[in-house]
Amino acid sequence: MTLILVFEPLAILSDSFWLSSFAVAALIFWFSFVKLSVQFPHSWLNWIFKLVHLQLGMLILLIPIQLVLFQGVNITSIFANLWAVPIISFITIPLIMVSYICIFWYAGQNLLFGIIDKSIILALWPLAHIERYWLDTGHLPIIITGLSWLIILCWQFSWFVQYKLLIIVLIYWLITTMKQNYLVLWRLIMLDVGHGLAIIIEQQGKVLIYDTGISWKKKSSANSTILPYLRYHRLTPEGIILSHNHIDHTGGVGSLLLTYPGLKIRSHFDKKNHFPCHRGIYWQWQKLYFEVLWPIIDQKRSHNNESCVVKISDGYHSVILSGDIEKTAEKELVRLAIANLPANLLQVPHHGSNTSSTMAFIQAIKPQYALTSVARYSRWRLPSDK
């Protein structure tokens, strides 16, 4: 772990890093404290029993990290592992090693690569069948699992006697963490959806979603990020505000509507089932006040410069969500709504591109904080330096 973090410090943000680390720790723990003593007369039965014993340990011990990372668990994964591990261990990996030897024999290497691809497809075959057994959870199962493992460790290493005060502090921290969410008046969360935008406006367990990230093939940011976040925090979405009709902002709408069919959508699109989102629209949701500053009603398109710019306020703090507006729209906003522009926080327009964030616009808003939604390895290298 140390060497990995020395050469790649950002690996600590990777799910695979934590899964691999916990898997190694789980193997050590399982073989140290849950030893296999049963022996069969046939060696092949011993081999199968050891494999099942190993996979059972991995299933049980990796449940906590799965709950933390993915807010859910699939109990049937043991069958996928029992199928995939022998194929990957005895076919895929040996063939990969052989392919390095055949580096100058192109025909042989291509043949091996073809077999390797087929072995991986074969190993992944059960995944499509066990996907339906995925169980979504929230934060409570994580806390319960954490307490359970704390009890196991305290019992195994006699920590009840040696570290009484530490255990009391940990339990107190877990209880107070559960109560913290109820003390928050409201909050705005910008989710990490790469090159796209998805913002959660939360109050009293209900949320509005401003933009829904990107989509690709049969998945979207809603599947990978928005829905897991809502389930983890046990939040109920009541509506969606779409800034403009670009795929990196509307990609998750379909998945969200499949999960929550009654969601109300507000946009500047030409769709009959959408509520309007143009200058002059006001509404109250929970104890928050929403005002649409842009676009003007006459604009019929829904591209960057026609993004639905919304100001949210509780009477003390205010936020401006600006979508992807560029210099032209910013200039018009300063001209039409300069008195309503000052805010504490600004969602930086157009992912921090140099097409936006003019000096006049920034000076009119005077934000104390600014949030930019960008991808780590964006080909556009956003946010721009200028």
Rank of each mutant, 00 (worst) to 15 (best):
Y369C: 02
N46I: 05
T92Q: 11
L59S: 12
R379W: 02
E306L: 09
L5G: 06
F160S: 05
T250Y: 01
L341Q: 03
S224P: 00
Y232L: 13
L263F: 07
P41H: 13
N344Q: 06
V309D: 03
F275N: 09
I144Q: 09
V309T: 02
S322P: 02
V348W: 06
T176G: 12
T76C: 09
D298I: 09
K118L: 15
Q363H: 12
W18T: 04
Y260S: 01
I116F: 06
W149R: 03
T250R: 01
Q162C: 09
I312Y: 01
I78D: 04
V34F: 14
W380G: 14
V34G: 00
R379T: 07
G108W: 09
K217Q: 12
Q284H: 04
I325Y: 02
H129D: 13
S43W: 00
F361E: 01
K300M: 08
L140E: 09
I12L: 14
G315E: 10
L127N: 12
Q368L: 11
F113P: 01
K272N: 12
T176K: 10
Y106E: 06
N305A: 05
V6D: 07
S221G: 08
W186N: 11
Q368N: 10
S224N: 11
K331H: 14
Q286G: 13
Q66W: 05
E202R: 00
F7G: 03
W173M: 15
L61V: 07
P228V: 15
K327Q: 15
P383S: 03
L382W: 03
I151E: 13
N340I: 01
A107V: 10
D314C: 07
L140N: 09
W283Q: 12
L174V: 12
N181F: 12
L191A: 03
Q204A: 14
S243R: 04
L19Y: 07
I226F: 04
N81M: 14
A84F: 07
R132P: 00
E8C: 13
T355D: 09
I167V: 14
L382Q: 05
H129P: 00
L174S: 15
S313G: 05
Q162M: 08
D270L: 07
P41E: 10
S148C: 11
C154R: 00
F29R: 02
H42P: 00
C277R: 03
L5S: 08
W83P: 14
K264R: 01
K366F: 00
F22K: 00
K327C: 11
I101N: 07
I48C: 10
S148A: 15
Y172R: 06
L183N: 10
N354C: 11
R279K: 15
T137I: 05
I209N: 01
K164N: 09
T137M: 09
T259R: 04
A360E: 07
I120V: 13
L263Q: 02
V319F: 02
W134G: 13
N223V: 03
E291D: 11
V334D: 05
